[in-house]
């Protein structure tokens, strides 16, 4: 592998890549909610498009390859909210633990 010179993984223009997969999926409710949270948190001044992207980039290539689009987005939104002081990591941990006890499915827990 060539020595790293500063080109970051998300900066893909011109990289070797395979075939384009044309499969398309409808978005689930939870994904639409993630999208809405990004828009609303931005309108509320808690984050912006660049801060969303910055965390996605810093999450690294493995996250891009192993997580879905909106999984990465909620991770970025969540980190942005902690950075903005909207809530603390302790509050997030407590809330996530509580949500988890509500049921086995997203429908039960939401």
């Amino acid at each position: 592998m060539a020595e790293f010179f500063g080109k970051r993984w998300h900066d893909m223009g011109g990289d070797p890549a395979g075939d384009i997969n044309h499969d398309q999926h409808d978005f689930a409710l939870w994904e639409k909610r993630v999208d809405a949270l990004m828009v609303l948190a931005s309108s509320a001044g808690l984050m912006n498009t660049d801060s969303l992207r910055r965390v996605l980039e810093d999450m690294g290539e493995e996250a891009y390859e192993t997580m879905t689009y909106y999984e990465r987005w909620i991770a970025s939104v969540s980190q942005n909210m902690v950075e903005a002081g909207a809530f603390s990591t302790a509050e997030l941990a407590e809330k996530m633990a509580q949500v988890k006890t509500r049921g086995a499915t997203y429908g039960d827990a939401t």
């Binding site: 500063g6 080109k7 900066d11 223009g13 992207r53 910055r54 980039e57």
Partner: peptide
Amino acid sequence: HWPPGHIRTPSYLR
């Protein structure tokens, strides 16, 4: 230039 961090200048145009 090749600084670390968030920038919006694609590498292939530098």
